[in-house]
Amino acid sequence: MYTNAQKLSSPETQELRKDAGKLLKHLREKAGHSQRSFSAEIGSPVYTFVSQIETGRGRVPPDQIRVWANAYGLEAREFLMMIMRFYDPETFAILFEDEPGVADGSAFPELAVTKGEAGTPPEPETK
């Protein structure tokens, strides 16, 4: 059985999850939601689920990408391209290494909020 190669206990994974959380919090606030109102918008019975993801202790469930994107007022593909760099950096690098605006994040100004205390999104490997 295949399992995700990204080890949850690794410092790099924890750092990426924290960076993703910063981005998600920024997107939620930009959309005008509190954690409670966002939780209601995505159909989660408990707002602490949103809190856990925003603090890096979880990730947006893959089957909820469209729901979260809609709640942020984003297209699902755009949202996925923003968060995939944090949740699956190797796949992201393979898919987008030839698309500079996506690969370096410049196509998504919202990614700037992840720079700073929690680090920066990973740079895709180039050949």
Results as ranks from 00 to 15, higher is better:
residue 127 K to R: 14
residue 15 E to H: 05
residue 25 K to T: 15
residue 117 E to T: 06
residue 59 R to I: 04
residue 19 D to K: 10
residue 50 V to Y: 12
residue 124 P to H: 00
residue 81 M to K: 07
residue 86 F to L: 03
residue 98 D to R: 13
residue 66 R to V: 14
residue 5 A to T: 14
residue 1 M to F: 04
residue 36 R to I: 12
residue 71 A to R: 03
residue 3 T to H: 11
residue 11 P to W: 10
residue 34 S to Q: 00
residue 80 L to F: 10
residue 109 P to S: 13
residue 17 R to K: 09
residue 1 M to R: 08
residue 47 Y to F: 13
residue 27 L to N: 07
residue 12 E to P: 05
residue 93 A to I: 00
residue 1 M to W: 02
residue 99 E to P: 01
residue 43 G to W: 09
residue 56 G to W: 09
residue 31 A to S: 08
residue 90 E to A: 06
residue 110 E to V: 01
residue 97 E to A: 11
residue 85 R to A: 04
residue 99 E to W: 08
residue 10 S to N: 01
residue 92 F to N: 04
residue 40 A to P: 03
residue 68 W to I: 02
residue 124 P to V: 08
residue 45 P to Y: 06
residue 35 Q to I: 04
residue 69 A to K: 06
residue 109 P to H: 07
residue 52 Q to S: 10
residue 1 M to C: 10
residue 42 I to A: 02
residue 119 G to I: 07
residue 91 T to S: 07
residue 31 A to W: 03
residue 127 K to Q: 15
residue 67 V to W: 04
residue 48 T to P: 01
residue 103 A to M: 08
residue 53 I to L: 08
residue 87 Y to S: 11
residue 85 R to Q: 06
residue 36 R to K: 14
residue 48 T to N: 09
residue 95 L to A: 13
residue 40 A to N: 09
residue 103 A to D: 06
residue 115 K to Q: 14
residue 29 E to F: 07
residue 24 L to D: 12
residue 68 W to D: 01
residue 71 A to N: 04
residue 123 E to D: 10
residue 79 F to K: 08
residue 33 H to S: 02
residue 127 K to Y: 15
residue 90 E to P: 01
residue 46 V to R: 13
residue 101 G to R: 09
residue 37 S to N: 03
residue 39 S to A: 13
residue 51 S to C: 11
residue 82 M to C: 08
residue 98 D to K: 11
residue 111 L to D: 02
residue 5 A to D: 05
residue 66 R to Q: 11
residue 19 D to R: 13
residue 50 V to F: 04
residue 102 V to H: 04
residue 29 E to P: 02
residue 119 G to D: 12
residue 79 F to S: 03
residue 4 N to H: 08
residue 124 P to F: 00
